[in-house]
C-alpha cells in the first residue's frame, strides 16, 4: 500500500458504494417514477444522463485546469504537491473525456428522435465536442510529449488555456449556430417528478465521476510512489 493507502482505499470503497446507490436510485426515478414525455416518449429519458454527463464533464475539465494552475504555480518548489496536482490533472482529464464520450454518444441519439438528424450543430453539443477534442489533445500531449516534468508542464498549460477557450468557443458556436429548435428545449421537464429524477441523475453522475477520479488518482499516486521507491533504492545502492 502506498502513502495513506488504506485510507484512500476505504474512501474509494465508500464513494463506490454511495455512487452505486445513487445511480440505482436515479435509474429507478428516471424509468419508473418520472412520467413519459408527451412528444418524445421514452427517448426523452436519454436527457437525464446526457445532461448529467455534460455538466460533470465540464466540471471535470474545470478541476483539471485548476490542477494545472496549481501545478504551474508551485513550479519546482514543492515536489509532493506538484505530484498531487499532476495526478489530479490526469485523473480528471481521463474521467472528463469518458464523460465527454457519453455526451457525444447520447447527444446524437437524442437528436435523432427530437430533430430527426443524428447530428445538429446545437451550440451546447458543439461546445461539448470542442472541449472533448481539446482534452483528447491534452491526453495526447501527456502520452507523447514526455511524462517528465517538462511534458507535465506543457499539458498543464494547455488545460489552463482551456478556461478562456471554453468561454470563447461557447460565444462563437452560440452565435454561429443560429436558431435551433425550441421544442423540448429544456428537455421537456414539465412534471415535478421529472425534475427530481433530473436532479438525482446529475448528482448520481457527479458521484460516479468523483469515484472514478478518486480511484484513478489513487492509482496515479501509487505509480508516483513506486517511482519514488525505485529512486530510494537507487539512492541507497548506487
Amino acid at each position: 500500500m502506498g502513502k495513506g493507502g488504506p485510507v484512500s482505499a476505504r474512501i474509494g470503497f465508500g464513494l463506490t458504494v454511495v455512487a452505486a446507490g445513487l445511480l440505482t436510485a436515479a435509474l429507478y426515478m428516471v424509468f419508473f417514477v418520472a412520467p413519459l414525455e408527451a412528444t418524445l416518449g421514452i427517448s426523452q429519458k436519454i436527457f437525464y444522463f446526457h445532461v448529467g454527463a455534460a455538466i460533470n464533464m465540464l466540471l471535470s475539465f474545470g478541476f483539471c485546469a485548476l490542477a494545472g494552475l496549481v501545478y504551474l504555480s508551485i513550479g519546482g518548489m514543492n515536489r509532493r504537491w506538484a505530484d498531487i496536482a499532476d495526478a489530479v490533472g490526469v485523473a480528471t482529464a481521463e474521467v472528463g473525456v469518458t464523460l465527454g464520450a457519453i455526451v457525444l454518444i447520447t447527444g446524437p441519439l437524442w437528436a435523432r428522435k427530437a430533430w430527426g438528424t443524428w447530428w445538429t450543430w446545437e451550440p451546447r453539443l458543439t461546445l461539448s465536442l470542442m472541449v472533448f477534442l481539446l482534452f483528447l489533445a491534452y491526453l495526447a500531449l501527456r502520452a507523447f510529449a514526455g511524462s517528465d516534468r517538462f511534458g507535465r508542464g506543457v499539458a498543464a498549460g494547455l488545460s489552463i488555456l482551456g478556461i478562456p477557450a471554453v468561454y470563447f468557443i461557447h460565444f462563437a458556436v452560440d452565435r454561429w449556430g443560429g436558431a435551433h429548435p425550441q421544442v423540448v428545449y429544456k428537455g421537456g421537464l414539465t412534471q415535478p417528478e421529472m425534475r427530481i429524477a433530473f436532479g438525482l441523475s446529475v448528482a448520481a453522475v457527479f458521484l460516479l465521476a468523483t469515484t472514478l477520479s478518486w480511484l484513478r488518482l489513487t492509482i496515479e499516486r501509487e505509480r508516483q510512489h513506486l517511482d519514488e521507491l525505485y529512486l530510494e533504492v537507487d539512492r541507497r545502492l548506487g
Partner: peptide
C-alpha cells in the same frame, strides 16, 4: 533524477 535513476546524488 532521470526516470528511476539518480544522475546526481
Amino acid at each position: 533524477v532521470f526516470g528511476r535513476r539518480h544522475v546526481l546524488r
